[in-house]
Amino acid sequence: MIIEKPKIKVENLDLYYGSFQALKKVTISIEEKKITSIIGPSGCGKSTLLRVFNRMNDLVEGIRIEGLVEIDGENIYAKDTNMVALRKKVGMVFQRPNPFPLSIYDNVIYGPRVHGERNRKKLDEIVEKSLRAVLLFDELKDKLDRSALSLSLESQQRLCISRLLAVQPDVILLDEPCSALDPMATLKIEELLQVLKNDYTILIVTHNMQQAARASDNTFYMLLGEMIEYGPTEQVFTNPKDKRTEDYITGRFG
């Protein structure tokens, strides 16, 4: 698939955990302000690939990465990469909502505070804006001092997303963000993503084919660390080009 101005560009990416090669010559361009879903059987390397984009894998012992990964045309694996700026630019949301055991307010301003913001009025603004973006503000505006852990799982996941938005990222990575949520909450998060994609580039890993089909613009199918197929979501789900994609999405492999 040809993408005019990719937000993220990956070329010939090889990733090794020690002697095990988890990603093999992955080449993919991610479209800006679109939702890209990454699908594939367990262990195929989806989370590994996602973590490449904010260099979360760096902490893993024995890891080795070869190939090119660019965001906005900049090689994020260059020696002089500013890691703080990268993590700010590329935020991640996990399977289980993981709010800090702090108040709702303090969760949202956690990032900005770490980045040095102290102005109370500014922080208030950030909280309002970030919670509005995830459609939580009206519900929570009078309860901002309550513990984040008192929220429903769905609201916790929204809060985690707003915590990301507070540091003004460009790219949002979501690793099975709905797997702990019930179907209604799942749909609501998907709706939220549709709103967020106006401003952010979103990558979502999911095991839920219906979710990938419903919620994403482009779909990337991986198998054993390799890219098998990448294309517009409606094409991948109605007329996949590769037999292996067909077998996977129709539930005949996996």
């Binding site: 084919m209 219906q210 109605t238 007329n239 994609t245 067909e246 999405i249 129709t250």
Partner: peptide, 9 residues
């Protein structure tokens, strides 16, 4: 069955 791909077609 939420059919996909050829099943859907």
């Amino acid at each position: 069955q939420q059919p996909m791909a050829k099943d859907l077609r």
